[in-house]
Design a binder for these strands. Structure first.
Lengths: 239, 239
DNA sequence: GCCACTTATGGTCACAGTGACTTGAAAGCC
DNA sequence: GGCTTTCAAGTCACTGTGACCATAAGTGGC
């Protein structure tokens, strides 16, 4: 099929967009950055931030640009990776749109800057977002993104992306607990994290919180993957 | 950005295609189905089968259709899943093309049917394919696909998709060995496979090969994921 | 200062899963 | 029968994990 395409003219034109699922852990909940739509379709509904891919721009570059425009954040400081593409014919009533979803993970991020497209952006708890009505097929994308994030916690060290450095082992543990919806044994978690080469690096400093013994501080290590993985073995708890 | 798009007219038109990475294990090698391009660009080079997404067709449906057109195979009998999207601006010299790559896994498949677009299709060992010159960015796609397949063997039961039923434990082991490029201990592999609930189901039958004790025959089980996973722990062997 | 409370950190123990290896079973071939 | 080949089952040491206990080191109340 591909051989018979006339040069430079799309065989069947579609729009290409990127949508961002930006996750953070804030106030004990996994939250996603959503905007309130100001126009039809889906006026007033929550939607994932995103936008059109520009002519001379790659998909990753478009995701980075949108991230900067919508949140004022530098994508190189976050964990940003492609999730997958969504292109069901009726997903956008205005025409045929194929969107490439990206998953961005970051520490308790500032509320998005005003004066941008995302003036009405909010950090919405993922549970609420999935109960609310989301524009287009963004509920499906969000579900896939959360599942991807849960899985990535098992096999990679991305959990550190949710912590502002320096962080304590308990900070890191709470990331796992919030995203997995479980509780983890503090002692066993510490053993796993500190004994896994390259997961975290001690800074030598300590931090005294409101209560309890001061906790040692850590930075993210160089390892990208977790071997052996940290599997969410038991059944999930109450939700 | 998305709100300002004029209805039904793409903000910036691109072409949407699907490309298929169809893998099988044949004659002791991991092979990929490639076609010889009959037109420019990349005339004569190997390329992944694929084609344009049609107006009223979802991405998954397009992948299923292309699979049928190119190989005569029913995608429901294979393991078919989206890999990721590729949309670097210069990847196709004829214009802006975003392609969604799919990974298909199947047992020693018949040579593709003639009389289709894929008249010049061949099963090429993956090693050779990556050394040869592939059209567009298909080398990158193939590399990603093979890595994905290797990872899926660890955490899922897809290895059974490479075996025609009924199969022996040794058949299944050779799938792992070929795709991972390692050797596995037959005894430990058997223990793992047979003791993992839902991985394989005994048929009760036996098969006598050219030499050796007859092997028990199995079907694929109901389990989709492998828990605990079957990790490729040691370093890869010579390649 | 002493005490209750909280959180961090360290250790023990039993058990499951795995890698390396040995032994035995069941076929064909000479 | 003796040989080779492959399948199958068992042993053993080691690692990682979950459950649990004990201690350390802060805060705030009195």
């Amino acid at each position: 099929m591909i051989e018979s395409a006339p040069p430079t003219i799309p065989r069947f034109p579609v729009s290409a967009t990127v949508d961002l699922v930006i996750l953070t852990v804030r106030e004990g909940a996994l939250r996603v950055l959503l905007i309130r739509r100001g126009k039809e379709p889906h006026l007033g509904a929550y939607a994932l931030p995103g936008g059109y891919v520009r002519p001379e721009e790659g998909l990753d570059a478009a995701a980075l640009r949108e991230l900067r425009e919508e949140t004022g954040l530098d994508g190189r400081a976050l964990h940003l990776a492609q999730l997958r593409a969504y292109g069901t014919p009726g997903r956008d009533p205005r025409g045929r749109v194929v969107t490439v979803a990206y998953l961005a993970l970051g520490p308790d991020l500032p509320t998005p800057v005003a004066g941008t497209d995302a003036a009405h952006a909010e950090w919405v708890p993922v549970d609420e977002a999935l109960d609310a009505e989301l524009a287009f097929d963004h509920a499906e994308i969000l579900r896939d993104a959360v599942e991807e994030a849960r899985t990535k916690l098992e096999y990679t060290t991305v959990a550190t992306s949710f912590c502002r450095e320096p962080f304590t082992v308990s900070d890191l543990r709470r990331v796992y607990e919030v995203i997995w919806g479980t509780t983890l044994d503090p002692s066993n978690f510490r053993r796993k994290v500190t004994r896994t080469e390259g997961f975290v690096e001690p800074t030598g400093e300590r931090r005294t919180a409101e209560a309890g013994r001061p906790a040692a501080l850590y930075r993210a290590g160089r390892a990208q993957v977790l071997y052996p993985p940290l599997l969410r073995s038991g059944e999930p708890e109450r939700r």
